[in-house]
Write a protein that binds this DNA or RNA. Structure first.
Lengths: 218, 218
DNA sequence: TCCGGATCTGACCGTCCGGTCAGCATAGCG
DNA sequence: CGCTATGCTGACCGGACGGTCAGATCCGGA
């Protein structure tokens, strides 16, 4: 696994714009397959076949299956944070922004299902190991963005002063992740009426969180 | 995979109390290893070694690696629901019961870390496939128990009448699952102050959910 | 046109893994 | 004591997989 790579010792510090023909195709194929079946269950030959190149070519570009996986993770992280940043805008009342953030995040998870599953799996499989720095990075950025947004609302007096903003952020993200994880199971359950309606789900989440579940003060 | 099993065609409709010597050891070893590394990354030989039996013995008892995995899942499901039921008791005011449920569930996840990771992985990896009926069963029971508890509170007027109980349950469970999943990542983050204190976390979760995050009505 | 480096490939290798099988050992029984 | 059923094992097999290698092809520059 720590073999002598012939050439390409440090192939491209920044991803060079030109070149990259087969490499991109390989990355795309690998992303889909890894997300679908996980690292161990995907042979390099399958990735090569899907990308329309030879197996040896995969090793030519990435040296190791492990390095390919890392590259896929890196790419996925980049894409994820990019979309997320575009989405995190929002103004208006605080509860509206809560609703906006929760909805945007859930939509993001569902739209980028493959990437989401890939990163999520990475967290489940090996919390601090392997590409932890990567997953952690996305995770960190997302989490911090949300925390900042909530803290702003708190500073403006739109949120209880004694609230722990990071716990609030965890509640929001957790609710979305739970939906993403569990929807395939929930959809078969009578008790869960929300499983097929993510919009309504995140709206309710935000509303309950903001207004509380106590009986309406009459 | 669909080979002729010599004996034991329907070995024990209910798990027979006697026999079971090596089999139990194999199940235990497999549970730990599968939880740690996942199905594909664990060779049968490793399970056999850990259980102190020969590889062939594993096949003698379970016929297939796949069937062994199923058996592990089944066992884990049983243990999980049992503990859960013991925990779901609780009386007092509704918000106290909310807090109790959230805390108990999170404690349950953390104490049974291996089993939790096993089942969680099963949901992430293949939502509706393979042992879905199993994971779904635990999931269903847990979720339904929580939903019932919340609905009871609602009937007693301790909870907003218009609240969707299943969404509330999802919020609670999601928050806990998120904690379980993310704690290894969160623990390295400055923003998350709660990562090392599950008790406080679930207390806050329940309180925010019940009282809401709106500025305190003065 | 020739050259050199990069891209790409088919064929191959060593290893590991799931699963099989023929037989050993032990325990219950006559 | 012998017979048999059965838990159990070492040795083995076929296939798949990660990775290598020698060379074919392509392409830009001198």
């Amino acid at each position: 696994m720590e073999n002598t790579q012939r050439q390409v010792p440090a192939p491209a510090p920044a991803p060079t714009p030109r070149r990259r023909k087969g490499a991109e195709a390989i990355l795309e194929a690998a992303e889909v397959l890894f997300a679908e079946r996980g690292y161990n269950a995907v042979p390099v030959s399958a990735i090569a076949a899907r990308a329309g190149v030879s197996k040896a070519n995969v090793f030519h570009h990435f040296g190791t299956k492990d390095r390919l996986y890392l590259a896929v993770l890196r790419r996925a992280c980049g894409a994820a944070t990019q979309v997320w940043h575009e989405r995190m805008a929002g103004d208006g009342a605080f509860d509206a922004r809560l609703r906006h953030a929760a909805g945007a995040h859930l939509r993001h998870l569902l739209e980028q299902e493959e990437v989401s599953r890939l990163l999520l799996r990475e967290v489940v499989e090996n919390g601090p190991r392997r590409g932890a720095e990567l997953a952690e990075k996305v995770f960190d950025e997302h989490f911090d963005g949300l925390v900042r947004m909530i803290r702003d609302g708190q500073r403006n007096g739109e949120l209880r002063e004694d609230a722990d903003v990071s716990v609030v952020a965890a509640l929001l993200l957790g609710a979305d992740v739970f939906f993403f994880l569990a929807r395939s199971v929930l959809i078969h359950m009578k008790a869960a009426t929300f499983a097929s309606d993510p919009e309504r789900y995140s709206d309710l989440i935000a509303e309950y969180l903001f207004s509380g579940l106590a009986p309406t003060h009459k």
